[in-house]
Amino acid sequence: MKKIDAIIIGAGPVGLFGVHQLGIKGLKAVVIDNLDKAGGQCIELYPDKPIYDIPAVPECTGEQLTTRLLEQIKPFKTQLFLNERVNEVRKDNENWIVTTNNKKEFIAPNIIIAGGVGSFEPRKIHLKQAEQLEEKSVFYAVRDKEKFKNKKISIFGGGDSALDWALELSKFSKITLIHRRNEFRGAQHTLMEIKKLEKAGKVSIKTPCQIESLESENDLKSITIKFDDGKTEKIPTDVILGFFGLIMKLGPIAEWGLNMNKKTIEVNPENFETNKKGIFAAGDICSYPGKLKLILSGFHEVALASVECFKRARPNEKYRFEFTTSSKTIQDRLGKK
């Protein structure tokens, strides 16, 4: 476990800009996020939508903002740990130790929580049996296609993920595509392909209906779906794949002993420290009088937090306020000659 100066939880815009603000002060950080990519809400919820209120950037999409932030922090060669959810935070003298769901550990005097509205997790089927069979026969993502060969697969959902996987997996499995409305929302040519496969008998489509129950003896045997008109149908099924989108779950953050206000963490707006020394919160997840949930506000908050992080990580050095335009040290850190 190598010691660093700050652990940033959340690779949304605020976490990423945090790397920059720490980096120009000479502090080393790591960033941890539960998603498989950086960008937080910007990349997950609105990659193609334009944002109009980033100062000096009249217009950029969620994806462009993320790409530019990543570009801006490149000089600091910061490690991003993705697909890792921070589960636990504990104290170790003057330091904090953070543990992820995959049992990775990090140690630092500072933690900046830039967790937004929580970590993104798949929405699940609300049936007890579905919970018990999760990762055995109920899945919300396809990690290893091999697992899905020569199976009877029931795919739920009406968007791109459901359609794309129905197409892909129909190459070697029997697919039933189930959706609560008659309309599917996906790329035109994918929809046409699916229709073709339906005609050929490779994919069967069931709408408008929802899942009613699962039948299993150890393994999943079948599912029962209920149509809007009240009729039900039993479908032999080995594997369920659900694509109901992602939801933000505050999750473990609520259990770290921080003062919370609904789903947000209370901070001191002078330095964005929480009630625990060395744990900071910035961006959508922090609350203080007048808080605005804007990217712009998050940038300001994490900049102030980084000053306090410096004081804790370098107790024997004096913090000097510097401009990037005029500081030789900062320009060196940015790799500018």
């Binding site: 809400q41 919820l45 609105y46 509205v117 929580g118 939801i247 933000m248 789903k263 949930k293």
Partner: peptide, 13 residues
């Protein structure tokens, strides 16, 4: 009513 996304039609809560 949770309203996690603050009304931007991105959460359905």
């Amino acid at each position: 009513i949770d309203a996690d996304c603050g009304g931007s039609m991105a959460c359905a809560t």
